[in-house]
Structures are given as structure tokens and as C-alpha cells.
Computed example of a mutant assay.
Amino acid sequence: MFLKSTAFISTLSLAALLSFNQALATPSHYATLSDNFGQYFHRELKSYKVPGGAFVIVEGNDVLKLDTYGKRDKNSNLAINADTVFRLASVSKTFAGTLAGMLVAEKKLDWQQPIVNYLPEFTLADPQSARQINLGHIIGHSTGLWPNSYDNLVNANIKIPKIIGKFEEITPMCNPGVCYGYQNVAFSFIQSAIEQQANQSYQEMLQTRIFDPLKMKSATLGFNAFQQTTNRAEPHVKTKSGFKQVKVKQNYYRLAPAAGVNASITDMSKWLIANLGQNPEVISTDLIKDLTTPGIKTTKELRRRDWRSHLDSAHYGKGWRVYEFEGRPLIYHAGWVAGYVAEISYSPELNIGMAMLLNGESRVVAKLSAEFWRDAFLTADRLDKKH
């Protein structure tokens, strides 16, 4: 029987789930679901006039469905293909959480270490409050800082060292670990800790610990790497007269852990497979469990328009959101940056995952993903009854 529990994550044995589902499920169980989603994806993107996109659905170590839609640039005839590179925006946080978690597992970092140990120039209106914020708070959005602190300055293209200096003006809204406040600037403080303990640049760490071992051949970090990629999807923003192509901005690329990764849908299939536990030599089951253990409650997520009828609880783990979707654990993250939308999610119980990348700003991804997981769990229930 498939697991349903309100204490869904704390009681999960990931290794047992993987073994159970590998024995129970085969790709054919979700083939119809995948094919139907492919048709729905094309229909909805066409309806919303999104310039282009791509999606992938995986089960265990297998790609069930990978498909693309539309153009890299609405003004050209270049079609998006499986290796077209998109910006991942905040889905980049899943990589940052994993890199930090690897160093914690290797005893090079500790989630309880104060961030000021690695970023001594960081302070708040009350310096003692700054010293109470640890690496776990940084990676789990429980710093106590006001949501999206100084994102306005990132949008204004202010350099990051100057933004860090502005934190001395902030009085937190709560003590660390007490309340949720989503961050981009503060989240990226984790880069200093990673680089100092790994003795590598953040980019080198990504390449040697994740991209290379998982054979994510198109994945890169940063603005320059994206601009040098020939097969890339250009950004489009929504206007009253439809989608308009815009230039790629550098601002959020300066926050590499929060929004710096570029990847194709083929790369995302490999990232999903690894997070389903299929590459334990790269991402161990213990690390996956650590990253997806629920941390701070994120009650605002329960009000998401396309998801609210399905979500029973929502938390943030370490670089991943942790949902309870109609009694089932679902690991999730989304990203949105000028001209791009990305989503990634997986069910450790069903042993399947999906990702979507768009080169046009549209909320259609939330509708698509919510309905995909509704249908996936309905499929699982039917399989359950047969057994």
C-alpha cells in the first residue's frame, strides 16, 4: 500500500521506499500519464501563447517522457530541443542546498555554525542577532529577516558587497528559526561558507561535485556562460500586446546559489534521477533525507491558487520545499526570473519526478504541475487497489 501520513517525512525510510517502488512499479505504469501530460503541456503552452518550453518526467533511473515546444526566440525559427539551455532561477537553490549538505556530511561544515564565521562583514542593527543566524537558517529561509530583504537593490543592479553593508540597518522580524522569510541575497551567503571549506570556487564545486559526475553536459553557472551557449532559450516577458523578447539581465546572476544555474531539460532529467536516489555515489540517501526534512512552516504556500485544494502542509527543507500533497510527501521548487519560469518536483513515494522550463513568464506551470501530481497520485491509488 502506498504511504499516507500526516507525519509523512519524519517516518519515511527513503531507502525502503526506493526498494519498495522499484519492486512494485515499472515505467509502463505511468506511461499513459506521461503521454497525456505531453499533450496537455503542448495544448496549454499554445493556449497561453508561451514562446517555448520543455518538460521531462522520470521514474527511478528511466526517462518516461521528454518533450519540447516552441522556439528559442519568438522572432526566429530556431526550435527548442532537448539540449536547449534555460535559466533555472530559484531552482538553483536546490543545487546550493546539496553542495552545502555534502560538506556537512563530510564534517567540513555544520548547520549550527554562525554565518558570521564565514561572512564577518555581515551584521544587523543588533549585532548579536546577526551572530545567532547559522548556516541552517540561511539554507532553510529561517533567518528571521524580512522576506526578500534587499531584492529591490538587486533589481536596481546594486553590487552585492554594497548590499551586504545595508543589512546593518535591518531589525529582524523574529528570532532565527522562528518564522519563514524567503531570501535571495541572504540565501547566497552560503557561497562564502562553501568556498572557504571546499577550497574551490562555487563554480568549480558545482562542476566537480554535481555537473560532471551526473553528466549534466549543458549545465553551467553564471551570465557569461549562458551568453556563450549557442543553443539557449531567450527570455520573454508578458505585455498587454503579448510576449516580448528582452535581454538577459546580469543582476540575479550575481547571487549564484540563489539564481545562477543554467541547464537544459536533459540536464534536469539527470538532476531528478539523482535526487530520486539513483546516484548514491553523488547524492547519498542520507543527504537526500537531510535536505528534504521539513524545517520552517511556509503557510503562504497553502494559498497558492492552483495548489491550495491539494496541499495539507508546506515547509522549507534545505534548498527544497517539502509539501504534503493530499497526504503524500512531495519535494518541490520553482524559479522565476525576468523572462523565464522553472519548476522541479518529485515524489519519493512514487519514485517519479518531473521538471518544466519555459522561456516566457507564465503561471501556467503551476496549473500544469498541480494537475500532473493530482493525476499521478490517482494513478498510484489505482495501482494500489490492484495489489
Rank of each mutant, 00 (worst) to 15 (best):
V85S: 02
R87S: 01
N81R: 08
K71M: 14
K159D: 15
N155F: 12
G144K: 04
Q113C: 01
P161Y: 10
E106V: 07
L119M: 07
M173L: 00
L124P: 04
I164S: 02
T84C: 04
G136P: 06
W146I: 10
L124K: 02
T94V: 14
F86A: 11
S90I: 04
V58A: 00
P172I: 07
A100T: 14
S129D: 11
L88E: 10
G52R: 04
I158C: 02
T94R: 05
I158Y: 13
V116D: 04
G136S: 09
A79L: 15
P114I: 05
C179P: 05
Y182S: 05
K108Q: 15
V104M: 06
P127A: 11
Q113P: 00
I80F: 05
T123I: 02
F55V: 00
L103D: 11
L99R: 09
G60V: 00
L78V: 14
T98D: 12
R87F: 01
Y118W: 10
T98R: 11
L103N: 03
L88A: 11
E121P: 04
G181C: 10
N175C: 03
T94F: 09
K71H: 09
T84M: 07
G97Y: 12
V91E: 08
A105K: 15
A82K: 14
T171V: 13
A130Q: 01
T171S: 08
L145D: 01
L153S: 13
S92Y: 07
A89L: 02
Q128F: 14
T68W: 08
M102Q: 15
G97E: 06
Y180L: 11
K71T: 15
K71E: 12
P120V: 09
I170W: 05
L88I: 12
D83F: 12
G165S: 15
C174Q: 05
L103W: 12
P120E: 06
V154R: 01
A105Y: 01
P127N: 01
V116K: 03
G177W: 04
N61Q: 09
N134F: 00
F55C: 00
K74S: 08
Y118H: 13
L135D: 03
N157I: 09
Y69W: 04
K162L: 12
A96R: 15
